[in-house]
Every structure is written in C-alpha cells, then in structure tokens.
Amino acid sequence: MRLIFLGPPGAGKGTQAARIVAKHGIPQLSTGDMLRAAVAAGTPIGQKAKAVMDAGGLVSDEIVIGIVADRIEEPDAKKGFILDGFPRTLAQAEALDRMLESKGLKLDAVLELKVDQDKLVDRIVRRAEEARAAGQPVRKDDDPEVFKTRLEAYNRDTAVVAPYYAKRGQLTAIDGMQPIDGVSDAIASALSVAAQG
C-alpha cells in the first residue's frame, strides 16, 4: 500500500499516518527524517545533500527524489509506505511519478485531509493557550504567527499538488474536521475502495 497524505499543517496527517503505520506495518516516510538518515549514513545521495545543506542551500528536488528512491528500496518499505509532507510541489509530484514508474510501482491512494483553515488557526491558538495554562512549553509550530506563515507557504506551493492527483483520478478528499476516529474510519473506507480498484 503506497500512500501520500496531503493537507495543511495541523490537519492531523501525523496522527492518522501513525494509525496506518500501526495497523498495516508500513513505514511513514518524512523527507526531513530521510534526509537526516541519508546524511548520517553517508550514502552517495546523502553526501550530495550534506554538501548543499552545509552551504546553507535548499536541497534540490532531484536529491529529495533520490533519497525517496533509495528509502523505498529498504526491506520495511517493500509492502508499502506513507509519504508525509512530500511531494510539496507540482515538480516533485511529477518527478515522484516518473521515479515510481521506473521501478514498476504506482501509488494506491492520495488522501487529502480537508480542513477549514480559519478553524485550524483557532485550534492552534487554543492548543498554545492550553499548553501555557498548564505550564508546558508551546511547540514552535503552535506559535500562531509561525503557523500562519506555514499555512501561507502551503497554500502558495503545495495546494496545487491535490488538483494534479485529482485530475489523475487518484485523490480522495477526507473531512479532517470530524473527530479523530471519524477521520480514521473515512481513511479506512477510502483505502478499502483503493484496494479493490
């Protein structure tokens, strides 16, 4: 089962991905984690990434795709994987398709968690207030200004990825505003439909 999770920051992708990992035994692949692992392992592509990062640059799509390509060859990803936070751009989505095709693989489903972004900002503000009230540190991502900036970046760069997959008939929209278990149930039925397709 090869999946992509799309949706703005704070939509619940991480929570839902963790449930699928537990249920299906497939890894959740975050490009950030994969980059750090490739750099730490000193793989050829990891060395390229390290050189770019050391110079303060952004890692190119080509390097990121290379890292994803290497990672999905590992034994734990043979049954499938969840890509979370990738692809972020149209160019990455197209490059991912080409790379999967070259390996004789295809995506089983692209799930987009649809959320009301104004309510999402309220949810983050509330989460930050609750943390402060409980005397806990506020997650950097829960700072309302940081969060709004991340949301703007998502709307500018990544929101175009969903229509790309919709045109290809691969996108399933999930109402991300319902309770967590409701979202999980909607995902489970979308995956069973994908498995029959």
Rank of each mutant, 00 (worst) to 15 (best):
G182L: 10
R156M: 14
F147S: 03
E62F: 09
A49R: 02
E130A: 15
S60Y: 06
V193S: 12
K119M: 05
I72T: 00
G66N: 09
L107D: 03
Q92M: 13
V39H: 00
G169H: 08
G197H: 11
A134M: 12
A41F: 11
G12D: 06
R168K: 15
L111G: 05
G42V: 12
E112F: 09
L29I: 15
A159I: 15
A91M: 12
K13D: 03
I65E: 03
G42N: 12
G66K: 07
A166S: 05
R150M: 07
R19Q: 12
P27Q: 08
R127T: 09
T43A: 11
L83M: 06
A194G: 04
A190M: 08
P8F: 04
E73M: 11
F81M: 00
Q196C: 04
L35V: 13
I20M: 05
A95Y: 09
A41M: 11
P163I: 08
I65K: 01
L171W: 00
G135E: 11
L105M: 12
L100F: 10
A91R: 13
E129R: 14
V125T: 09
L113H: 02
G14W: 03
A91Q: 13
K148R: 14
A17E: 05
V161S: 05
L90V: 10
I67H: 02
T172I: 03
D54P: 08
G7I: 02
D157Y: 13
A41T: 06
D108K: 01
T89K: 13
K79M: 06
E145D: 15
I20V: 14
V160F: 12
A109Q: 07
L6A: 04
I45C: 02
K167A: 13
L171V: 02
A162K: 06
A134F: 05
D116Q: 11
A195L: 15
G182V: 10
F147R: 01
I20F: 01
G104L: 10
L191Q: 07
K167T: 07
A11M: 08
L6D: 03
L120I: 03
L120C: 06
I187A: 06
S102G: 14
Q196T: 10
I72P: 00
I20A: 05
A69I: 02
P163M: 11
I63E: 04
D108P: 01
P9E: 06
G135N: 08
V121F: 04
I180A: 15
I20D: 02
A166I: 00
L111A: 07
R150Q: 05
G85R: 02
K78I: 05
A153G: 08
M34Y: 01
V125I: 14
A49Y: 07
F86H: 06
T158E: 01
L191T: 02
S184R: 10
I180K: 14
A188I: 04
G176T: 02
Q117F: 08
T149G: 13
A195F: 15
I187N: 03
S189G: 07
A159R: 15
V52E: 02
N155L: 15
Q178Y: 05
L58A: 12
P8K: 07
R126F: 01
D157R: 10
